[in-house]
Structures are given as C-alpha cells and as structure tokens.
C-alpha cells in the first residue's frame, strides 16, 4: 500500500450544520445508497435537509451561497448516530468536507471518518457557540485545525480541541488507514487462526 499523507492541519472555511443526534439517514438517505461505488455520493449529502419533495432547495446553511466551498462542518452532539454505513462519511468527504468540529460523535461514524483521513474533533459548547458566531458573521474567514497543537484557530484566537489519542496519532503519522499495519504481519494472523477451534 502506498504511504498515506500525514494530516497535521486542516484549513478551510466552515459551515454550521445545526442540531444534535444528526443520524446517518439524515446525512445520506438510504435510497441513495444503491450504488456499487462511492463516487457521486457527494451530491446527495444531506439531501432531504437541503431539498424538498420536488427537488427545490430548502433554506439551510449548506444551500447558502456564502458557505459554498466550505470544507469544515460545525456540528452538535452525537453527530453521525445510527447506521454503520460508511456512505455517510464518504458522502461528506465527496461533498468536500475535510474535517468536522462538533460536540461529540457516534462511535462508528467517528471511526469511519478517521479512516478517510477526515478528523472529527470535539470542542465544548461555548467554543462551538463562538465558532458558529464567527463563521456566521465572517463566512469567508478560514479556520485552522491544528492536530499537533490541538487547537482550532479563527483569526487571532485559538481554542482547545479534543481528539481521541488513537485517531490523533494515526492522522499525524499518516497511518489513519489501518490496512497497511494489518497487512504487515501475516504470520501472526495465521498463528491465531490455527489456534482457534473453529477456523
């Protein structure tokens, strides 16, 4: 496997996606999962939130011109709950999202997003509120997530972020996709297989 990029910083404009417990069906409605590749999923990200029954745009930050091209999403708590489907983080990644800042994440979503090299960092409520206000009033201003310093910077100000150590190390070391590691000691795998009674 080719070496992966080391992810130390993500810089980009941000878009607030309000609400807690945003589930995977909301991120990518199941009817768009009929596909054999992930290509093309981006345009269906948050489809039912962005469009009404007739395909007309609904008022939502993701539809606003001023947030167009944003690569960081600001979200609430328990983001990505529900299904294990990787279609959800994949659709966001294809939509252009490169990092998420939020209060908390569902476990499987967090893992899936990390494997794509898309950090999901956590901040406290006050910071989220402040960042949302900054982004709302200056949508053209870029935020920088720094995984070495563990901060998010908006203009002059920096705020602390949290990220599980395993995910952070993986991203910084360019080992956010574990497959290379899993492949490199086949003999260890075979030893375990031989020892198990049912394999």
């Amino acid at each position: 496997m080719a070496a992966l990029e080391k992810i130390t910083k993500v810089t980009g404009r941000a878009v607030p996606v309000p609400g807690d417990d945003v589930d995977t069906d909301r991120i990518i409605p199941a009817r768009f999962m009929k596909c054999v590749t992930f290509d093309g999923l981006g345009e269906f990200a948050f489809y039912d939130v962005r469009y009404d029954g007739e395909g007309k745009k609904k008022p939502h930050p993701l539809n606003e011109k001023r947030f167009e091209g944003a690569t960081i999403m600001l979200v609430g708590s328990n983001f990505g709950c529900g299904s294990s489907r990787e279609h959800a983080p994949q659709s966001l990644h294809k939509f252009g999202v490169r990092a998420i800042i939020g209060l908390s994440y569902a476990e499987i979503f967090f893992g899936n997003a990390t494997t794509l090299g898309m950090p999901c960092v956590s901040v406290d409520k006050d910071t989220l509120h402040t960042l949302t206000q900054i982004v709302e009033s200056h949508p053209d201003k870029a935020l920088t997530i720094d995984l070495e310093k563990m901060t998010v910077t908006a203009g002059e100000n920096s705020y602390p972020i949290k990220l599980a150590e395993t995910a952070r190390e993986g991203l910084l070391a360019g080992e956010w996709d574990p497959l290379a590691l899993l492949l490199n000691k086949p003999e260890d795998i075979e030893t375990v297989a031989d020892r198990l009674h049912y394999v």
């Binding site: 294990s84 499987i108 893992g111 497959l179 899993l182 795998i189 297989a193």
Partner: peptide
C-alpha cells in the same frame, strides 16, 4: 457492525 473500509480490512486480512 463495521464500515466499508473495515469490510475491506477483514476481507484482506481477516482482522481489523
């Protein structure tokens, strides 16, 4: 339950 990348991992290595 696992994501698609992990399905790949399990197919390729029987581990995750």
């Amino acid at each position: 339950g696992i994501g698609t990348s992990q399905v790949r991992d399990v197919l390729a290595t029987q581990t995750m």
